[in-house]
Structures are given as C-alpha cells and as structure tokens.
Nucleic acid binder design. Sequence first.
DNA 1: TCTGGGGTCCTAGGACCC
DNA 2: TCTGGGGTCCTAGGACCC
Length: 384
Amino acid sequence: MGRIIFHIDVNSAFLSWSAVKMLREGGQDLRLVPSVVSGDPSDRRSIITAASLPAKKLGIKTAQPVSMALRTCPSLVIVGGDWGWYKQCSAGFIDICRSYSPVLQQFSIDECFIDMSLRCKREDAPAVATCLKNQVRDTLGFTVNVGIGPNKLLAKMASDFEKPDKVHTLWEDEVQEKMWPLGVRDLLWVGKKTEQRLTAYGIRTIGDLAALELGPLTHLVGQKFARQLHDNANGRDDSPVETEVPEAKSYSAERTFSKDYTDPKDIDRALFNVACIVAHRIRRDHFRASTVSMFIKHSDFTVQQKQTSLSQPTDITAVILNEARRMLTEIWDGTAPLRQVGLGLSKLTHESAEQMSLFEDPKLEYYREWDRQYDEKRARAENK
DNA sequence: TCTGGGGTCCTAGGACCC
DNA sequence: TCTGGGGTCCTAGGACCC
C-alpha cells in the first residue's frame, strides 16, 4: 500500500507573519511591497531572513546581506524579527495541520509533514490539501504551499514548486516529468559544494543524477551520501513521519561583531555574553553538558574549533566560561582580528540524572547563586 | 555585495582496549 | 620482537538544513 504524505510550508514565513501583525495594527501589507525581515536592521552585518515576493522579483534573496539588498532597492522596507509572535503563528499553523492528521512531524518552525494515508484516498488528496491550505489562509491570514507525494522527500519537493498559496502533487509516475528536469541543486541535501562536485562531473539535473551508477557517485560524495542521493533522485524515500519530538543534542550561541575585533578585552566580553546565554538555556531546559566547544571565525571566514570534555557535567556559567577562555588561548594568538566567537554545549544529560559529588568545590555554590540571580533577572525581562 | 544564528549528521585520524 | 583486526571513543572539520 502506497503512502500519502503532505508537506506543508508557510510561504515566506517570517515575512508573512510580520505582515499579518502589521496589518492587524493598521499598517501596510508587507507582502505587497518590496520588504524583508532581518535579524537586526540597524546592523550592517545582518542578513535577510525572509523576503516578500516583490522583493524576490527584484533579485533579493534570503541570506543576502541587508546592505546589498538596499543597493538593489533603496526603498526596501526592513523589519526586525519578532520571535514571540512567530511562535504563536507557528503553533496556530501546526494545530490546523494536526487536525487533518495526528501523524505529524514538525520539520522546522514553518514546515511540517503529515501522514494522510489513513485519512484520504490518493485521488482525493489534492482537494483535502486545498481545504487545509484555505483553512490556514482564512483563519490565520497567511498562505502555505502543500506538497503531496508517496513519501516525505517527494512531498517536500512538491511544496517547493510554484508559490504562493498552491497545492502540487509529485507521485512516482510524475517524477520523470516534474523532478528530473530540475537542476541538481534543487534536490534536498544538495548544497553548494555538492553541486560543484556534481557539475564538475557533468551532472546538472536531478535526472542526470538518477541515471548515474552508484559506483562513480560513491567516488564523488562518499558511500553513505551517494546511496541517499541516488535513492532521492529516483524518488525513493522510506523514512517515516516521526511524531516524537527528538531531544536536543546540543546548544550553542554565537556573536558576530559589528566589525572585526582584535582587542582581547572585547573578545572576552563577547565570550562572557555567549556563555551566559547558552548556559542559561541548558539550565532552563534542565540539562547539563559534559562537552564544551569553543569556536572562532576569522576575518576571512575560516573557522577554528576546540572542544573539551569535562569530568563532571555542568550547567554553571563560570565553569563553562573558564573552559572557553582556556581553549581560546590555545586557538587564538591574541592579535588576529576575529569576526565571531561562539560556544557550544553537548553530551547532554538530564540534571536529575546527576551524580552528587560529596567533595564539591565550595566556589561552585557561589557560582550557582550567581546563575540563579541571572536566571531570575532574565525570566523577569522575558515576562515583561 | 560581503556574507546571521541555531541546529544535525558524517568523516577521518588517533588513542586505547581486547 | 614484531605483528593482526575490530570496536569504541574523542576531536577537528565540513556539509547540509531552516
């Protein structure tokens, strides 16, 4: 029995959601003018998170620097992101999707898969999908694309066809006509590097990839990835719609400076800030980490990383910061200009699974108290 | 034009154990 | 004295996603 999978994708999610909010507050509809959402509109180094269709028509793309987009369109409307609102919009969207099928996998804040195999017949699927898409639009005020296919891969590829506010199918017998002519970059998991490798070998379309023998492909991208690409290019994917929300495996925070820093005092201040942020987050989620990773990005975008394993899992800012500072001296000469610093925590355990140490460093209690006060302050600020 | 922030997974080499 | 093969863990780096 073939499956019926829907992939539902919010069109220009952050931009649409900001537009809905602005409309409600009596403002203009951002979707009708060249407009973008960016992290921090005042920061020259921020990039575009989402763009309206009129902006896209001018050649403005997601992930482009704001400064570049402004040169393309000086009258571009730029708004900052609003995470709290986006989460509300996302929850409303997911709720509607779930009402069509409880077998739902949230893929990101603005995308999900639902397994409709037990809910409709193949020939009814487009009508059901149209109903879902209209319900989201009419109750929440933003549009989605729905892709329908026999598996997650094809459903996702289908939702990426013509936008916005559209339903598309991509069944096995449509793969040759609808997917094979597409450039290889359009295939899920084929990024810039893989595209370069494939085109250097003369593989330009997904059809080229599908026709390729596994042997030469293994040579290009490695065995595991070759198997997956080959299957996907042929429309094969048997991964299930996972309803369980996987537990986090790592937390990280990073900070890009408004201009490259060389002063160790500036770097250390930034490191302190990211340590506070990331440690706060694992405490909030009741984890402790056994591995601390430190990364720096140089002016030329090269990245250096160093990680260390702790003898005891921790959630204490001071302990994490201390490790980070030590690792920084090992990878940074103290003079090279840096673009970014970041900190990661992994090898997580639940704080309840913690082994109590009888002979704990008395300083740790002081550090914990400091963290408690920090967490309280943050909670107060967030509830305002 | 000059490139954010937050994640996941894979690979490859070295250490260490049996 | 010199040698195998496999398994696991750790670290650094790189690719991809949204």
